[in-house]
Amino acid sequence: MTETQQGRRRPQLSDEAAAYIRALIMSGELRPGSQVRPETIGERLGISTTPAREALQLLRVEGFLELVPRRGFQVAPLTGADIRDLFRAQALLGGELAGRAAVRVGPAELAELSALHHELMAAAARNDTGLLEEKNHAFHRIINHLADSRKILWVLGLTVRYVPRMFYASIPGWQQATVEDHGKVLDALTAGDANAARGAMEDHLTHAGELLAEHFDARIQGEGQRTPA
């Protein structure tokens, strides 16, 4: 492998590692104060310690990790309230995009969104969490790009990366909430009602944040009550 190829590959590996660690933190699997070692992350993901360490540095800049003298990287303080705040910001942005999409959506896009929604429902019925998340992501992506607002979409992207997609479908209540909430968003888009679409998307993302925050708080509280081994 050439030096140029390595230079292209390393940022991708570090970004993937950062997303993985971020998801562990947001889901509560890595609780605040936990030590995070690049060697451990590298072993889990099958990568070298260099991109793993770069990922930890990135998460330190983002505020997910702290570098403690003589102890290394540790998970920074995080609460359910923090998660609710992140999702509230996402809800406001996503709601605005949905409202704009409602006046731009056409028959072809509505047909695609409807097909995705039915595929999502079928995935939920089979408890196929991987396919469910795939269809969920595609559903939101179409709506976001329909809005044709590059700057809002860019800002939304900064908040979305904090969402632990790989763990989402395993959160209690998320599958049912996604099916029901998407149905309301689709109804508003079909009616061309910008206000209803904006409200439905805000409610959906706020609901998702509440489910994640409750899951996080319960997991942290439960682990805190365990008797040390």
Score class of each variant (00 low, 15 high):
Arg165Lys: 12
Ser149Met: 01
Ile142Gly: 02
Glu112Lys: 10
Arg161Pro: 07
Leu189Ala: 03
Pro172Ser: 10
His117Met: 08
Gly157Ser: 05
Ala191Met: 03
Glu134Pro: 01
Met121Phe: 01
Leu132Asn: 04
Leu189Thr: 06
Arg141Met: 08
Trp154Leu: 13
Lys151Pro: 00
Thr190Arg: 10
Thr159Trp: 08
Asn195Thr: 13
Asn127His: 12
Leu131Met: 09
Leu153Trp: 03
Pro172Met: 06
Val163Leu: 06
Lys184Cys: 08
Val185Cys: 02
Thr190Phe: 00
His182Trp: 04
His117Gln: 15
Glu112Cys: 04
Tyr162Ser: 13
Phe139Leu: 06
Ala194Trp: 02
Leu146Gln: 08
His182Thr: 11
Val179Leu: 05
Leu113Ser: 11
Ala115Thr: 14
Asp193Phe: 01
His145Gly: 02
Thr159Tyr: 13
Trp174Ile: 12
Thr190Trp: 00
Gly192Thr: 11
Val185Gln: 00
Gly157Met: 04
Glu112Trp: 01
Leu132Phe: 15
Met166Phe: 04
Asp193Lys: 01
Ala147Gly: 04
Thr178Lys: 03
Val155Met: 08
Ala115Ile: 05
Leu189Glu: 03
Thr178Glu: 08
Gly130Val: 13
Ala191Gln: 13
Ala188Cys: 07
Val185Ile: 15
Ala123Phe: 03
Leu156Phe: 14
Val179Ala: 10
Trp154Glu: 14
Leu116Ile: 15
Ala194Leu: 05
Asn144Lys: 01
Pro164Arg: 07
Ala194Lys: 01
His182Asp: 09
Pro164Leu: 05
Lys184Ala: 10
Phe139Trp: 12
Ser170Gln: 14
Thr159Cys: 06
Val179Gln: 07
Thr190Pro: 00
Gln175Pro: 09
Trp174Asn: 09
Leu131Asp: 10
